[in-house]
Computed example of a mutant assay.
Amino acid sequence: MKNFKNPLVLVLIAFATLSFTTITKEIKKVNTKESKVVWKGYKVTGSHEGTVSLESGALHFDEDKLVGGEFVIDMTSISVTDLSGDYQKKLEGHLKSDDFFGINNHPTAKLVFTKVKAKGKNSYEVTADLTIKNKTNPVTFEISVYGGKATASLKIDRTKYDVKYGSASFFDGLKDKAIYDEFDLVVDLVF
């Protein structure tokens, strides 16, 4: 018992234990050029869709099981793909304005996994903190991981992030000009 009080003996025991322990955690960086994030917003008279780019991202694994992740979204890259010409430029400018995502003051958004629960061999339920315009709220979604790819679909309530323009929840009399509070993100990751 006397030897265990010696700090050198404790260090040697710790070193020996770690030497025979396999570290199985791995962080896999997302290929931001090959990955794709598609958004779709809905209004009374239809919908619009486009893309937004990832600035960075990584998925965390313990052996082959997903255990975490974090992503930074480049909000300055938001684009509209269902329109062209002046209509496209006008909507992109409006989405980047303070009415929507205010990219001059909030050029990025962030998603950080806080809980990952296996639902099947390659399927997980994720709870994450999503930060848009310096407002953070939890979101829950499913993600599937297979090989070096992952896919997920998220439904986001924009009003929780102070994006209230055209929301019938906050403004009366909008009629067919109303924009629904929720929008979709469909994410295809390559890592």
Rank of each mutant, 00 (worst) to 15 (best):
L83P: 05
L59P: 09
S84W: 04
Y87C: 04
D99T: 01
F101W: 08
T108Y: 05
D74W: 02
A58T: 07
N104W: 02
I103S: 06
H106D: 10
P107N: 14
S97M: 08
G93S: 11
K90R: 13
E63A: 15
F61W: 03
V112T: 14
A58K: 13
N105C: 03
H106K: 13
I73G: 11
N105L: 06
V67T: 14
F61Q: 01
E70A: 09
L95E: 06
L66A: 08
V67C: 10
T76N: 11
K96G: 00
S97R: 04
L95K: 04
G68W: 03
N104Y: 08
T81G: 05
M75K: 05
G57H: 10
D98F: 00
L91Q: 03
F71G: 04
K90G: 06
F113H: 03
V112W: 07
S56R: 10
L66D: 07
H106G: 07
D74F: 00
S97W: 10
S56N: 14
L91S: 05
L59V: 07
L111D: 12
E92S: 13
G69K: 00
L66I: 04
L91P: 02
L111N: 09
L83T: 02
G69A: 01
E63S: 14
G85I: 05
D99Y: 01
I78V: 15
N105I: 04
S79F: 08
M75A: 09
A58S: 15
S79G: 14
S97G: 08
D99Q: 00
G93P: 08
L111S: 10
T108F: 03
G102S: 15
D62S: 11
F61V: 00
E92Q: 15
G102A: 15
V67Q: 03
Y87M: 14
V112H: 07
L95F: 01
G102P: 00
E70H: 08
D64T: 11
G57Q: 08
Q88G: 12
L95G: 00
G93A: 07
N105R: 04
S77M: 07
L83M: 11
V112C: 04
D98Q: 04
D62C: 01
L91H: 05
D62L: 07
A58D: 11
S56T: 13
Q88C: 14
F61K: 02
G57E: 08
S84N: 13
S77A: 06
L66S: 04
S77T: 15
N104R: 13
